[in-house]
């Protein structure tokens, strides 16, 4: 990402490229912050304010997290098979796996 930015700076002759930030918004109390998109800002304080103006104009949120995109580490899609498939045959982690009499209440 950083290398890419430098290249484009040369192309556009712009020394002032603001870094990219990922924006997470809690839409209401009790819910997790959810990724809603990204934007550019000079620093974290500005990123939060930009997020307020860009992503909550229609009362979409009550709390904002921002993370500079370059600090996000992601799993590799090529690992999908080894990462996620093994969970396929572990149905015992799901409550419906257990066959219990209907008379049993409050469980």
């Amino acid at each position: 990402m950083t290398a890419n930015n430098t290249i484009s700076n040369v192309i556009s002759g712009d020394k002032g490229s603001w870094p990219l930030w990922e924006i997470f918004i809690r839409s209401r109390q009790g819910l997790d912050h959810k990724h809603v998109g990204s934007l550019h800002a000079a620093d974290a304080a500005m990123a939060i304010e930009n997020a307020r103006d860009v992503y909550t104009r229609r009362m979409e949120g009550i709390s904002i997290w921002v993370v500079e995109s370059k600090f996000i580490h992601a799993s590799n899609p090529d690992d999908a098979a080894s990462f996620y498939d093994p969970a396929n045959d572990k149905v015992y982690r799901h409550p419906t796996f257990y066959d219990l009499p209907d008379e049993l209440k409050h469980m």
């Binding site: 020394k15 002032g16 603001w18 000079a42």
Partner: peptide, 10 residues
């Protein structure tokens, strides 16, 4: 341009 540059510099 000067605005974006100044914000970054700050």
């Amino acid at each position: 341009a000067w605005v974006r540059e100044a914000a970054l510099e700050h």
